[in-house]
Amino acid sequence: MEGPSSRLPPSLLPASRDWMVGRRDSGGDAESDRDIKTHFRVCRFIMETGVKLGMRSVPVATACVLYHRFWERASVHAYEPYLVAMSCVYLAGKVEEQHTRTRDILNVSHRYFNSGSAPLECDKEFWDLRDSVVQCELLILRQLNFQVSFEHPHKYLLHYLLSVKSLVNRHAWSRTPIAETSWALLRDCYHGAMCIRHIPQHIAIATLHLALNSYGVELPVGEKEWWQVLCVDVTKAHIDAVVSDLLQLYDMEAKCV
């Protein structure tokens, strides 16, 4: 399968291509660390593009899951990550019924890489870019065996939020931005491959747990903890694992940007 990376013109390449530099001569650990950073940056790109395209959280999450699943099967050397990301955004829009136009994706991406630049002209380069995005979309579909719909934690989190809310005094709840915080944490999960390593319920519970924890909100405790009720098989260890993965991503931000 010929990679479409060769078709991506320099105008769409990010200024810093440091993940390419010294890839060959570095050891395994360092390489995987570099890959993680690359993917973090590209996921940041997906998130930002998603916001600028007006995409909802679920399609953005799907785009990220597509992206991470793609790299589960493909080597980072073979394909251009940002092109894959653009195609993931495009494909996710289709999967989640929030269609985004390739033109918008190209526009936003172009401006992301060349900030403050004039919009693309309607010329051959534009159509070449468009073609490469569409071709790469087909590549992703084949790589994922056309399994492109995923269950996301978003639905769980929202229902959990409502259930937990009725445990808390209404005034205390309205004072505390738990919904915003847990939603933000959930979205931030998608910066790393942790979003496909953990099951959705666990992620939802972990983000809600961390949000409650952050504000020191105490819930009544009966025979079972609230999270044990919401998901039968979740354990404290699960939650801690998700939370620690998530916290690593926040550490990564400082390292990558």
Binding site: V51, D104, Y112, E180, A184, D188, Y250
Partner: peptide
């Protein structure tokens, strides 16, 4: 969900400029 919250410093909605949004670029284009 159009200006979603994020704990990432780089994704704070206040950092996004209106002219970088797809609709604005499209209009200009």
């Amino acid at each position: 969900d159009t200006h979603p919250p994020s704990m990432m410093r780089g994704l704070q909605s206040k950092l996004f400029q209106e002219e970088d949004f797809a609709s604005a670029i499209r209009k200009k284009q």
